[in-house]
């Protein structure tokens, strides 16, 4: 197991280095950042001074090394727009995105896995049709469209939830979510939920007909225990990877959903910084999102190893 974790760790570090490389050169190919910072009427001399000041006149390899050495300690420079370190802005926006992502993941788990289970254990039944329909809709309805419909129905007409913004509830030093998270989280959860329904269903369907399930029945184990011990346990292995990957995406922030609901999270920040061509900030968010995804993939791999002894002992 240690060897397995170690090799995954090394792989993750390599990926992160690759991301830094791409993030750095991505900026190089989009043009000269100095021209953005100065007004259109700046003299060539002013441009040159600015370059000197920001270090853009040094050889590219030197620039890259210094970028990497600063990036590994979380320093991506200052946001041109906010005049603040980019990392600080991310940290500031992170709680909102985490709140949204965790809520969305919980909604999709609570709805997706039971629906998939019912569906997979009774293929062709009424509930199977309902679950498959929900799964298909979840994966095909554009979430920004659904978000607008939800606002129309639940905020404008019924008035149950606020239509935008994040409200929090402070209790004993903790910042707790309020109902304001429900609509954005539900819209965000839909795709993951659809995927979970479909994967749980097919995993259960496949494992139901495995030889070892037949063995379990031949031992006289009651159906319920066969489902829990033999089918669910094995079905959880493919589900772990989906949940890991999906949570990574959710945590990187959703541009659509956060923009529609004016949710003060990373997605919103990213949309704004792209609009402003705020390079330092875009780079920082891009790297941070990759970092989150890579870390979650690493955790997923470890969880995978824990769930499946065949991987653990290799």
């Amino acid at each position: 197991m240690q060897k397995y974790i170690f090799s995954r760790l090394v792989q993750s570090l390599c990926i992160l280095f690759g991301v830094l490389f791409i993030v750095f050169f991505m900026m190089q190919v989009t043009g000269d950042p100095v021209s953005l910072l100065l007004s259109r009427h700046a003299t060539p001399q002013e441009v040159e001074e600015m370059r000197e000041e920001l270090g853009y006149n040094r050889p590219i390899l030197i620039q890259f090394t210094s970028f990497v050495s600063r990036a590994v300690v979380g320093d991506f420079g200052r946001s041109f727009r906010h005049k603040q370190p980019a990392m600080d802005l991310i940290i500031e926006r992170l709680p909102a995105t985490v709140e949204l992502a965790v809520t969305a993941l919980l909604i999709s788990l609570i709805l997706g896995i039971p629906l998939g289970l019912i569906s997979g254990s009774n293929p062709g039944s009424f509930w199977d049709v309902i679950s498959r329909g929900t799964g298909l809709l979840g994966q095909t309805i554009p979430n920004f469209w659904l978000a607008l419909i939800l606002i129309l129905v639940f905020s404008v007409n019924l008035g149950w939830f606020p239509s935008f913004g994040r409200e929090t509830w402070h209790f004993m030093g903790l910042t707790l979510p309020t109902r304001s998270v429900i609509l954005p989280a539900f819209s965000l959860s839909l795709f993951t939920m659809g995927q979970l329904i479909r994967f749980t269903r097919s995993a259960v369907l496949e494992i139901r007909s495995e030889d070892y399930v037949r063995t379990a029945y031949s031992k006289g184990i009651p159906d319920r225990k066969v489902y829990i011990r033999h089918i669910l346990r094995n079905a959880s292995i493919p589900l772990i990877s989906i949940v890991g990957v999906q949570f990574g995406y959710l945590l990187s922030g959703s541009i659509y959903i956060e923009t529609i609901f004016s949710w003060p999270g990373l997605g919103n920040l990213l949309a704004e910084s792209i609009g402003n061509r705020d390079f330092a900030l875009v780079q920082a968010i891009a790297f941070f999102s990759s970092f989150v995804v890579v870390t979650l993939n690493l955790l997923t791999d470890i969880a995978y190893g824990l769930a499946d002894p065949r991987i653990r002992y290799e």
């Binding site: 495995e210 030889d211 070892y212 063995t215 033999h230 346990r233 094995n234 292995i237 769930a307 002894p309």
Partner: peptide, 15 residues
Amino acid sequence: GFIFQDALSALNPVM
């Protein structure tokens, strides 16, 4: 009691 053919697939891999 039942003994199946391919014991690798007839035994639960994660138990």
